[in-house]
């Protein structure tokens, strides 16, 4: 059900961990839905120089977190804001329909960390929206059920 890339990023996740004194930290998702992502960013001179994550969730949740951190490292803040769930998904050679929400969560986690950074430094990043409050009903996409 998962692509080789997804399995690779699940089995050998990149950038797992925490960053002490991170420039920005974002946590999204909730235990109710079965996935929580926490992303740490280290930003210097407008560039994301490091990213780490911790994720509670399925294989796709781990893989999308891993890929999102890989994509964001080295980017300017302006480019980092523009990383979409689609980009994360494409980089992983796709996700099963029921797991698309994991990629959305990865995008949201990056944005939440960037928002945290912007708040702490009292700056405005173009195109960045505040994280959704009380994300109890994030979109799980098409749910199918097997008998």
């Amino acid at each position: 059900m998962y692509s080789e890339k997804v399995m690779d990023h699940f089995m050998n996740p990149r950038n797992v961990g925490e960053i002490e004194e991170a420039s920005g930290v974002g946590t999204v998702g909730n235990a109710k839905c079965g996935d929580i992502m926490k992303v740490y960013l280290k930003i210097e001179d407008n560039i994301v120089i490091d990213a780490k994550f911790k994720t509670f969730g399925c294989g796709a949740a781990v893989a999308t977190s891993s890929m999102a951190t890989e994509l964001v490292i080295g980017k300017t803040i302006q480019d980092a804001v523009r990383i979409t769930n689609k980009a994360v998904m494409e980089a992983l050679d796709g996700l099963p329909a029921v797991k698309v929400h994991c990629s959305c969560l990865a995008e949201e986690a990056l944005q939440a960390a960037l928002w945290d950074y912007a708040q702490k430094h009292d700056i405005k990043i173009e195109g960045l929206k505040p994280p959704k409050e009380g994300d109890d009903h994030h979109d799980h996409g098409a749910e199918e059920e097997e008998k």
Partner: peptide, 22 residues
């Protein structure tokens, strides 16, 4: 249950015995 593997909701049985979602 294998029957719930395509769904993302946690098992109704585990919720019924009082386990929190996580």
């Amino acid at each position: 249950s294998a029957c719930t593997s395509g769904s993302l909701d946690p098992s109704h049985v585990l919720l019924a015995i009082g386990l929190p979602h996580e």
